[in-house]
Structures are given as structure tokens and as C-alpha cells.
């Protein structure tokens, strides 16, 4: 397979990130233009430019503008944030557990976060509590994700040692349990059955600029905090004792990383529900393309993850258009065979 291997420099990171950001942007534009009502590419770009406050004449109709700016843009931006967040969280869990199969969905953490979000949605009345709702839901999801992280971490070890098989199975079971709880709560909230399904398989259709703002700012802050640990993850990958010799406070690094990655997962899924396998597929492809160095793996997974989920959501909208699939269905169709392939390859 193609691999660009030489010591990673800032210029490498910038050029790879830049290229992948362009891919993500192109995916975004495609996703804005395509749908049950197609909008011409020129009109789409024109509306985007105008959306930035730059006067720009053209042929776009007012209804095009509503479709792009009100309906599709928040959804595309949210897909980018969720994809990037789940991918970065996946990289961190894989580095911590030294296991390429660890990711937020398999570990049950996405389900914990979603449960937190659903509980908060049920508890906070819809009317008159806009800000409370906007911030309270992600906060509850954050707590839910941390609780699952702790549970999986404690149950996944035996005599103080993390066992990879045990950890993954524990995650899957905790996830199944939390999914059942989500089901119960959504049903008790007297929502229709369809919305239960959307929470369990991922749902980006309720995106608003408000949720994009909250998720996006947390995403950028947490991703930066994770990125500055990248060279320590490299060392940790060569062994815990080696990391101590090279000056890494391994216990502190692990605590910070679990906290950041679980928190990021929780906040991301609070707006989207459980979307599986993104954190598995994206880092795996990036590792194959760019090597195991986390200084490149983290930013490349961030941008590639954004592009990946934008395109997955586009597929989810297009396949049975005008009907929509939950985006998690698409990621599961891609991710589950991937999981099996990696498992088989590892022997």
C-alpha cells in the first residue's frame, strides 16, 4: 500500500491536512447540491459566498437559498463535526488500549453519550429553555460517556491489566445495555418509534446552527488538546515502560486522554445519536496511508473523518430518496466488514 514515510514535519502535517480539508470541503459542496431537490453547483457556490456576507450576483432562486442555508448547510457542518470528533476519539482509544479495534461505538461510549442526551431531552422542557437545552444536552451526554468509559475500563480489566478481548466484549455489552435504556426512555417520552431508531442508528437531520456551534467549538478545543499529546502517544505505542524512561507521565497522560476522548464522544453524539465504526474505519485508512505517527494521524483522521461522514450522510439521503436512512446504517454497512477484516488480518 501507498505510504508516505519519513519523519513527520509540520510541513507534512500542513500539506496532508490541507489536502484532506479540500476533500472535506468538496464533499460538503457535493452534499449541499445533491438531494431530493438538486441545486446547481454554480448556485450552491454562489449561495455559500453570499452566505459569508459577500455580495455576489447570480441565478440562485430564494428557494435554493433556503434549501442550502436553512436545510442542508447545518446538517453538512454537523456531519463534519461528528465525523471528525468520532475519528479523533477513535485514534485516542486505539493509542490508549494499543488496539486498532477500539473505538467509541464498540466501546459503548457513543451509547452512553446518547443516553445522557436523551435523558436531558426528556428532562428539559422544550419551551423557553433554548440555552439550557443547547448546553444541557451535550453536558448530560458528556457525563453519560464518562460513566460508560469508567465502567468499561473497570470491567474490562483483570487483575489490574487491560485485556483487549475482554475490553471489547465489555464495551459491546455495555453498549447493548445502554441502547436498551435509550429505547425505553424514548418510548416513555412518547416519541414515535421512528425517532427511537434514529437515536440508535444516528440522525443528523435535526442539526441547527446552535448545535453546530456548541459541538464545533468543543471539537476544535479538544482536538487541539489531543493533538499536543501526539508525540507522547507515539512513545506510549512503543511500550509503557519505554514511555516512562522518555519522560512521559503515563498515568496522567492516560487519565487526560480517557477524559478528553470520552467527553468528545459524548458531546458529538449528543447531537447525532449513535453512529458506529467511523472511529474504526477512518484511523485505519489514515494509518495505512500516512503511517502510525500520531502527529499526522490525528489531524489526517480529523479531516478525513469529516469528509467520510459528510459522504456517508449524503449516501443515506440519496439511496432511497426521497426517503432517508439513518446515517449509522451506512457507516455500519462499511464498518462492520472492516472490523471483521482487521480482526482476521491480526490473526
Amino acid at each position: 500500500m501507498l505510504s508516505l514515510r519519513s519523519p513527520v514535519r509540520p510541513s507534512t502535517v500542513l500539506s496532508v491536512s490541507g489536502a484532506l480539508a479540500i476533500v472535506a470541503f468538496a464533499s460538503g459542496v457535493a452534499s449541499l447540491a445533491l438531494g431530493s431537490v438538486p441545486v446547481r453547483l454554480s448556485s450552491t457556490l454562489e449561495i455559500l459566498v453570499r452566505g459569508l456576507g459577500i455580495p455576489f450576483g447570480g441565478s440562485a432562486t430564494p428557494s435554493d437559498e433556503i434549501i442550502i442555508l436553512q436545510l442542508r448547510l447545518p446538517r453538512v457542518l454537523l456531519a463534519a463535526c461528528v465525523g471528525a470528533g468520532l475519528s479523533v476519539a477513535g485514534v485516542v482509544f486505539q493509542a490508549m488500549f494499543r488496539n486498532a479495534l477500539a473505538e467509541p461505538y464498540i466501546l459503548g461510549i457513543s451509547s452512553g453519550g446518547t443516553l445522557g442526551a436523551v435523558v436531558a431531552l426528556g428532562a428539559i422542557p422544550i419551551s423557553g429553555f433554548g440555552a439550557v437545552r443547547l448546553l444541557g444536552v451535550p453536558a448530560a451526554a458528556f457525563v453519560g460517556a464518562l460513566v460508560v468509559m469508567l465502567a468499561v475500563y473497570i470491567l474490562g480489566q483483570k487483575r489490574g491489566r487491560i485485556e483487549p478481548g475482554r475490553l471489547l466484549l465489555t464495551g459491546v455489552m455495555v453498549g447493548a445495555f445502554f441502547n436498551a435504556l435509550i429505547l425505553v426512555i424514548v418510548v416513555l417520552m412518547e416519541k414515535e418509534y421512528r425517532s427511537v431508531l434514529l437515536w440508535l442508528m444516528g440522525n443528523l437531520s435535526e442539526a441547527t446552527y446552535g448545535s453546530v456551534g456548541v459541538v464545533g467549538s468543543v471539537l476544535i478545543l479538544v482536538s487541539f488538546l489531543i493533538f499536543i499529546q501526539a508525540h507522547r502517544y507515539n512513545i506510549l505505542a512503543t511500550g509503557e515502560e519505554a514511555a516512562l524512561h522518555l519522560g512521559v507521565e503515563t498515568e496522567r497522560l492516560k487519565r487526560i486522554s480517557y477524559f478528553l476522548a470520552s467527553g468528545l464522544t459524548g458531546i458529538v453524539v449528543s447531537s447525532s445519536g449513535v453512529i458506529g465504526f467511523v472511529g474504526l474505519v477512518v484511523p485505519h485508512i489514515c494509518r495505512r496511508l500516512f503511517g502510525p505517527d500520531h502527529r499526522l494521524l490525528i489531524p489526517s483522521s480529523f479531516f478525513f473523518g469529516a469528509a467520510f461522514l459528510i459522504l456517508a450522510d449524503l449516501l443515506a439521503r440519496l439511496i432511497f430518496s426521497p426517503m432517508e436512512l439513518p446515517v449509522g446504517v451506512v457507516t455500519a454497512f462499511i464498518g462492520a466488514p472492516f472490523f471483521v477484516a482487521i480482526l482476521k488480518h491480526r490473526g
Binding site: 493533538f227 499536543i228 499529546q229 512513545i235 522518555l246 519522560g247 502527529r295
Partner: peptide, 18 residues
């Protein structure tokens, strides 16, 4: 080379680039 460069880790700045 990557492993040997990890030896520079205790001396690196915030972003961890050599």
C-alpha cells in the same frame, strides 16, 4: 529513525515537532 527521534521527546516544545 522514528524511534530514535523519540529520544528527543523530553526536549520538544508544545506541539512536539523535532
Amino acid at each position: 529513525r522514528e524511534v530514535v527521534l523519540m529520544g528527543r521527546s523530553p526536549h520538544l516544545g508544545l506541539l512536539g515537532f523535532d
